[in-house]
Amino acid sequence: MHIPDGFLSTATVATTYVISAGGIGNAVRLANKNLGEKHIPMMGILAAFIFAAQMLNFPVAGGTSGHFLGAALVAILLGPWAAVLIMAVVLTGQCFIFQDGGILALGANIFNMGIVGGFSAYYIYKGLSAVLGDSNRSKLISGFAASWASVLLASIACAIELAVSGTSPLSVALPAMAGVHAIIGVGEGLITVAVVSLVMATRSDLLKLQRI
């Protein structure tokens, strides 16, 4: 879902840059307020964690393999603003190290995967676990639903940006992108559940960290 340069119109590039810059600015401010200068090494190392975790491939179907995306897990464990900050840093790194996603499209990529992905995951997780009760089982179900939905919603944001830029019509881009990512999201959801249940069993205190 990393949009390369050239696919988005100037207006889309400018709009998403402004929104993402504002989001990152607020994320830095909140991280600084809640964690103090500790957030600098911590956010950096957790961004490196996302990078390393994405190297673990698992087989999907027909010889293809998938990997973990991470925004939902970070949002569930550390809060939506932490997810925005960490994903922004990860995506900038991916742009300059792997050329995965363009420089001008960076604003849009941060918006889709950091802001849309992080916030939707956090609020769906919070809402569902409030409805389902405080058991471990309800946390896992909410974690699955939140990760699945965050991947799906991020891909829908991407389809809308492509359509607004005149690259592809919304009537086709939307179902195609959403369809593919509804499947990818299942893998993401299952992995998030496995991660959360491992953390629950070994370091359950990490599930009660202060969220930002």
């Binding site: 490196a48 973990f68 991660v195 953390v199």
Partner: peptide, 17 residues
């Protein structure tokens, strides 16, 4: 297989934190 990868990522998260 997915559970194994999930456990690895979980361990990696705890170690990173």
């Amino acid at each position: 297989q997915i559970k194994t990868v999930g456990n690895m990522i979980g361990t990696l998260f705890i170690r990173s934190y």
